[in-house]
Simulated assay, not measured.
Amino acid sequence: MLAKTTEVLCTRSDMGRYMRTTQFVLGATALALALTGCSAPGPGSGSSAASGESAAVQPGSAEALLAGLDLADEDVTGVIDQLDRLPVDERPTDLMASVQRDELVLTDGQQAATMALPEGKSYVSIAPFVDETHDCFYHSLTTCLGELSGKDVDVVITDSKTGEAVVDESTATFDNGFVGFWVPSGITGTIEVTAEGKTGTTDFSTRSDGPTCVTDLKLK
């Protein structure tokens, strides 16, 4: 099981709405938490807050923050699914999108908004690896990178209480090296991934203390 590290959401090593918008103002600590972690691509890109400078973040709307990406009319599942699948070179450099346990947090450093996740559903994004990985807890849709991009994978996610496979799918990792699934909230279990003759397994949790970002699944 991944240990929660409150000081980061996602750090890399060497690899460089059903519910509508809820408006809110992030406090300084929460904003720093939402923006820390995976580096935004390119020197000087992104907002001053994303680069570590303090900024007064105002309440905004998800529609406004997503308008430039043609996602303003999408519900939260559509936003998450599409952002996670974006080609890396098409990612916005001024938007942070953090998948937390019950909501998606969006901010450009000037405005911030949340979108509540569907009741009873959690999003888990998995980056299997062979040689290189990074620490992660809350998945950043716009900055996180995994090692294996565009690889065919077989994924089985099992609820340990019932023994039921809540996911049993052959798919491919996204351009960012991750593959994401909507699974029931409030469960624990195992994730097994097979790719190119290698298999790895790790524990997961979609309870309140569980990560949305799984980066400790080593294929061997």
Rank of each mutant, 00 (worst) to 15 (best):
residue 3 A to T: 14
residue 11 T to E: 14
residue 14 D to M: 12
residue 17 R to V: 12
residue 23 Q to N: 10
residue 24 F to W: 02
residue 27 G to Q: 12
residue 29 T to Y: 08
residue 34 A to Q: 04
residue 42 G to C: 01
residue 46 G to W: 03
residue 46 G to T: 02
residue 47 S to M: 01
residue 50 A to Y: 00
residue 51 S to W: 02
residue 58 Q to L: 15
residue 59 P to M: 09
residue 61 S to W: 09
residue 63 E to Y: 04
residue 65 L to Y: 05
residue 68 G to M: 08
residue 69 L to E: 04
residue 74 E to H: 13
residue 75 D to E: 14
residue 76 V to S: 08
residue 78 G to F: 11
residue 80 I to R: 00
residue 81 D to V: 11
residue 84 D to N: 07
residue 86 L to F: 15
residue 86 L to G: 00
residue 88 V to L: 15
residue 89 D to G: 02
residue 92 P to Q: 03
residue 100 Q to F: 00
residue 102 D to M: 08
residue 103 E to K: 15
residue 104 L to C: 09
residue 108 D to H: 09
residue 111 Q to N: 09
residue 118 P to F: 04
residue 120 G to E: 07
residue 121 K to E: 15
residue 121 K to P: 02
residue 125 S to T: 03
residue 127 A to S: 13
residue 133 T to N: 15
residue 135 D to K: 11
residue 136 C to F: 06
residue 138 Y to R: 10
residue 140 S to C: 15
residue 140 S to W: 00
residue 141 L to G: 06
residue 142 T to G: 03
residue 144 C to Y: 07
residue 146 G to M: 09
residue 146 G to H: 10
residue 147 E to V: 09
residue 148 L to E: 05
residue 150 G to C: 06
residue 152 D to M: 05
residue 154 D to M: 05
residue 154 D to T: 14
residue 155 V to K: 03
residue 161 K to C: 00
residue 163 G to K: 03
residue 165 A to Y: 06
residue 168 D to S: 15
residue 168 D to W: 01
residue 168 D to H: 11
residue 170 S to P: 00
residue 172 A to H: 12
residue 179 V to C: 12
residue 184 P to H: 08
residue 184 P to V: 06
residue 186 G to T: 04
residue 186 G to M: 08
residue 187 I to Y: 00
residue 189 G to R: 02
residue 192 E to R: 15
residue 194 T to V: 04
residue 195 A to V: 14
residue 197 G to L: 10
residue 198 K to H: 11
residue 200 G to V: 12
residue 207 R to Y: 00
residue 208 S to H: 04
residue 208 S to E: 13
residue 211 P to D: 08
residue 212 T to E: 04
residue 214 V to Y: 14
residue 214 V to C: 00
residue 214 V to P: 06
residue 216 D to F: 05
residue 217 L to C: 07
residue 219 L to I: 08
